[in-house]
Design a protein around this nucleic acid. Structure first.
Lengths: 344, 344
DNA sequence: TTGAAAGCGCTACCAC
DNA sequence: GTGGTAGCGCTTTCAA
C-alpha cells in the first residue's frame, strides 16, 4: 500500500500483462470463446479452426490466467493452506510432508505454505482467512485457537485440520500421539530392570509440544511399577551435556530416554566421557531411528516412529472438504515401537 | 473444477461469508465508508462515531477482507512466491529459511511457499504465474528455465531470483558457491600431504546440484598439485558404506571429502570397521559442522559453511522489486572454511 | 457456433 | 464527511 496503487505507470519496457481480452482481440473472437477454448468447456462446441486461433493467440501473448480473478468469479478456490511457523526438521517429517503435498496436488488442490512466524494466534488466523482457503491444515507448530477456527470457518474454510498434539475445538484433530513414544521407551527401560529413569527435556524452544507429552507418556508407563521418572533439561550443546553427566551419579539414574537420537548421542558421549558405562551403569534410548545412531558403540537403542502415509492423510483432507458436516475425525498418526540395539 | 462451481448451494448451516457490503448494511453506511475505515485511509476523514459503528459491525459479522478481490482491484499483490520442490533439510538451511521468511514479512510481503514437486519446469512456471506474485524466489531445487522466467515476467513478476547453484538467464542469481566447499576441503587435504583424494557423491536424488559443484571445486583445488581426485558414489546406508570401505585399499586412497558430515560419519565408521585407521591411513573431512561430528572419535574435521543472513537477502529481494531495471545482481551466498579436528 | 453482459468483492475516484 | 459507481479479470447464462 505504500507505493502508488493504481494502474502500473512503473511498468517499464515490458508491455502490460496480457488478459483474456487481449487473447480474444488477437484471435478475433469474444472473451467468452477464449474461456471456453482454454478451459475445454465440454458443454459448448467450438469449431476446430477457432480453437486453434485462440490457442495460438494465447501462446503468442504468453497468456496465463489470473488465479485470483478466476476464484473470485467461481466463489471458491481449491487452495489448501498449510501454516508453518518453522520449517520442520528431520528426515522423517520432511518425507511425510513431501508425500502429503504431492498427494494433495494429485487431488487437484493448490497447496500453499504460509509462514506465520511471530504472529499471534488470532492475527495469524485472520491472515489465513484473507486467502479464502478451502481447507487449513495446521501443522501444530502454528497455534490455532477456537476463536481462530471460528474466523476461518466464517470466511469459508470447509475444513480445519490440526495435525499435532493438541485437540482444538471444532477441528478435525489428527493427533500425533507423542505420549506413546515416551510410553514405549519407558516401558522398555522398566522391563529391562531400570528403576530411576531420566527423561531428557530439550531446552530449545519449539520442542515443548513434543517433549511434554513424551514425558507424560513415560510417567504413565512408570506408574505402579515402582520406577521413578526424573525430567532432565538439556540444551543441545556439549557443555550442557557435560554438566548433566557430571551430576548423573548424584541423581542415581540407571536409565534415560533422551527425547530423540540426537540428544541421545550427545548425552551418551558425555556419559562415557564421565566414565559411566552404557548400558552397564545406565541404559540410553533415543527416538527416530536415525542411521547415525547405529554407527555409535554401543549402538543406540531407539524408538522407531511410523508415520502415517502422506497420501492417506491427503485423502482424509479431501473427504473433510467434500463432506464438511461429518463428525470431526480424530485419529492417531503414529505408531511407536522400540528398536533395541546395544545401549539399553 | 470437478464439483458444482457456481454460488454455494452446499454451504450448510453456516451463513454465507460476510462481505464489506454486509458490514456496510449492518453499520448503515456505504461500502466505500467501510473500506475507508477498515483501511485507515488517510486521504479522507471519517467521524469517530461512524468509525466505531463500522468496526463493531465488522467485528460482529466476523468480517475478513478477501485478498483476491483486493489484489485484483489493486492490480498487484505483495506476494513473494517461494517454489519448493523438497523441504530443505538441515538446521543450517532451515534457520536461514526462517530468517528469510520473517524478514520478508517485516517488509510487508506475503510469503507463500508453493510446493512444485513433480512438475516440469515450464508447467510449474505457469502455475506460479497464475498467482501473479510480485517476486519469485526459486530455491534452486525447483528448476527454472529461461522460458519459465519469461513467462513469469510477462505475467507481472517484477523480480525473479534464483537462489542456488545455477545462473539462469534473466534472473537475479544468488549463488551458493558450492564449489568453494569442495575447494577448501580438497585444499586442506592436499596441504596436509594427501595425494589420492576421494570425493563422496551421494546417490540420493536431489543432491546432484550440490555434489556436482563440490566435486568440481575439489578438482580445481587438486589441479597442478600432483594430487588426484576420485569420485566415490555412496548411498546413505550401512551396506553401501561397507562396500565402499571394502574397496578402499584397492583404490589406494589416503584422504576423502565426504560431501557432508552425515556421509562422513557413515563412511568413517565403515572405514574403521574395515581396520583402516583415521586419520593415520586415511583422512576424512565432512561439511556442515554438525554437533554430532564432534562426538565421534576421532572428532570429525569439517567445512563450516557460513550462510548469508536471511534479513540481508530479504532486503535484496525488496530492492529488486522496487527497482526491477537495475542490473541483475549476482552474489555469493556462502563462505566456507575448514574446521580441523582430529580426523584429518 | 459465437457474442453480449452480469457479477464475484474490493477500492478509489468524483459528486454531493 | 459520506455515497455512488466504475472496473480489476474471469466464467457462464442467455440470446442471437
Amino acid at each position: 500500500m505504500s507505493q502508488s496503487t493504481d494502474q502500473s505507470p512503473e511498468r517499464p519496457a515490458g508491455r502490460a500483462v496480457p488478459t483474456s481480452a487481449d487473447v480474444a482481440r488477437l484471435a478475433g473472437v469474444s472473451r467468452a470463446t477464449v474461456s471456453y477454448v482454454l478451459n475445454n468447456t465440454s458443454a459448448v462446441r467450438i469449431s476446430e479452426p477457432t480453437r486453434r486461433r485462440v490457442r495460438e493467440a494465447a501462446e503468442e501473448l504468453g497468456y496465463v490466467p489470473h488465479a485470483a480473478a478466476r476464484s473470485l468469479r467461481a466463489g471458491h478456490s481449491r487452495m489448501v493452506l498449510l501454516p508453518t511457523a518453522h520449517v520442520p526438521v528431520g528426515p522423517l517429517y520432511s518425507q511425510f510432508f513431501n508425500d502429503f503435498q504431492w498427494a494433495l496436488r494429485r487431488l487437484d488442490y493448490t497447496v500453499v505454505q504460509y509462514g506465520s512466524v511471530g504472529m499471534r494466534a488470532e492475527e495469524a488466523a485472520r491472515a489465513w482467512a484473507e486467502l479464502r482457503p478451502v481447507a487449513v491444515v495446521s501443522l501444530g507448530e502454528a497455534e490455532l485457537t477456537a476463536q481462530g477456527v471460528e474466523i476461518l470457518k466464517r470466511s469459508g474454510a470447509r475444513a480445519v485440520i490440526t495435525l499435532g498434539t493438541q485437540n482444538v475445538e471444532g477441528t478435525h484433530a489428527l493427533v500425533m500421539e507423542q505420549g506413546r513414544v515416551g510410553e514405549v521407551a519407558a516401558t522398555h527401560l522398566v522391563e529391562t530392570g531400570r528403576r530411576r529413569i531420566g527423561v531428557v527435556i530439550p531446552e530449545e524452544p519449539g520442542l515443548d509440544m513434543f517433549s511434554g507429552p513424551r514425558l507424560e507418556g513415560a510417567r504413565r508407563a512408570a506408574e505402579g511399577t515402582g520406577a521413578t521418572v526424573v525430567p532432565l533439561p538439556l540444551r543441545y550443546d556439549e557443555e550442557s551435556a557435560r554438566a548433566l553427566a557430571a551430576r548423573w551419579r548424584d541423581q542415581d539414574l540407571d536409565g534415560v530416554f533422551a527425547y530423540n537420537d540426537e540428544y541421545a548421542m550427545l548425552l551418551m558421549r558425555a556419559l562415557q566421557d564421565e566414565g559411566i558405562s552404557v548400558p552397564g551403569e545406565t541404559a540410553v534410548i533415543g527416538a527416530d531411528d536415525l542411521l547415525l545412531g547405529r554407527l555409535l558403540r554401543p549402538r543406540l537403542s531407539t524408538v522407531a516412529i511410523d508415520m502415517v502415509l502422506g497420501r492417506e492423510l491427503a485423502e482424509l483432507v479431501d473427504r473433510a472438504v467434500r463432506e464438511p458436516d461429518t463428525a470431526p475425525l480424530s485419529r492417531s498418526l503414529l505408531d511407536s515401537r522400540v528398536v533395541r540395539r546395544e545401549s539399553s
